[in-house]
Design a protein around this nucleic acid. Structure first.
Length: 248
DNA sequence: AAGGACTCCAACCGCCGACAT
DNA sequence: GATGTCGGCGGTTGGAGTCCT
């Protein structure tokens, strides 16, 4: 247990004026929270915490529900499609995690934030380039293509060529539905993908653009990144990608 | 097999804006 | 307008699990 009282300790809560539990949630607490929200709905978190008999702060209840207990939350690895989308959205909006999360159904801002800090930044450091640069995105694309050139599709076997853009609002991402998602399937780029590939950061080599097919239908027939009516930044269009090809 | 290093992620904190009183 | 409360956000931490030697 640390000085901040993690590990399920109790302390005097400033807000509630009574002992407030902190640290990891127990199954019993989860059950209480889920049952209460099922009956009364979410919101009014401080009141909820008191009425449900949870010795937790409203904030803690909200966080637990939104990041873990909410049935909409997708568990499992972030797919390659999601990784590429996160990369693009982050280059647009920076650390606006909640905004980014809005475009990845079932993913929480906390999860995306963790992913960015633990994986993307590490890979970027490995490649000695900024994760928001075209070079880094090209490297990611390259890896995706290499991955795809192998035996498996990057998102397991859920690629569905009939996937169509849903009726999206401006800037809304076209993502595979959760039903198509490969929960639990390892599909992200691991460290090994980056070993000894520093040159990938300089030039993304695509051997055959003709054979390009979109991950889960993310690229339309004009090879635009999968935003309805919105090409996500010129750095992602195939023309520039072809330019990269010429640079090698 | 052991233990140190590393990775991942759940959960906390502080800050800020919106809203109520 | 001032103050208090609440919800939401981004940054950070540290425990648990995994990997490596």
């Amino acid at each position: 247990m640390d000085a901040h009282g993690r590990g399920g300790s109790l302390r005097t809560g400033r807000d509630e004026g009574k002992d407030t539990r902190r640290g990891p949630w127990t199954i019993e607490e989860d059950v209480i929270l889920v049952n209460y929200i099922t009956i009364h709905g979410a919101g009014r978190w401080n009141l909820l915490a008191r009425c449900a008999g949870l010795r937790r702060t409203g904030k803690s209840c909200r966080l637990r529900w939104l990041n873990y207990l909410c049935p909409d939350v997708r568990r499992g690895n972030i797919t390659v499609e999601e990784q590429l989308l996160i990369l693009e959205l982050h280059s647009r909006w920076g650390n606006r995690w909640s905004k980014i999360a809005q475009h990845l159904p079932g993913r929480t801002d906390n999860e995306i934030k963790n992913y960015w800090r633990t994986r993307v930044q590490k890979h970027a450091n490995h490649l000695k380039c900024d994760p928001n640069t075209k070079q880094f995105k090209d490297a990611m694309l390259h890896l995706w293509i290499r991955f795809r050139a192998g035996s498996a599709t990057p998102s397991g076997s859920h690629h569905n060529p009939t996937t169509t853009h849903q009726n999206l609002t401006d800037g809304q991402a076209c993502l595979p539905t959760p039903a198509h998602s490969s929960i639990g399937a390892t599909s992200d780029f691991r460290d090994s993908d980056f070993q000894g590939n520093e040159t990938d950061c300089q030039v993304a080599h695509v051997s055959s653009l003709e054979s390009w097919t979109s991950p889960s239908g993310w690229f339309d027939h004009e090879q635009n990144w999968g935003f309805d009516g919105v090409t996500l930044g010129s750095t992602w269009d195939m023309e520039e990608f072809g330019f990269s090809q010429q640079q090698q």
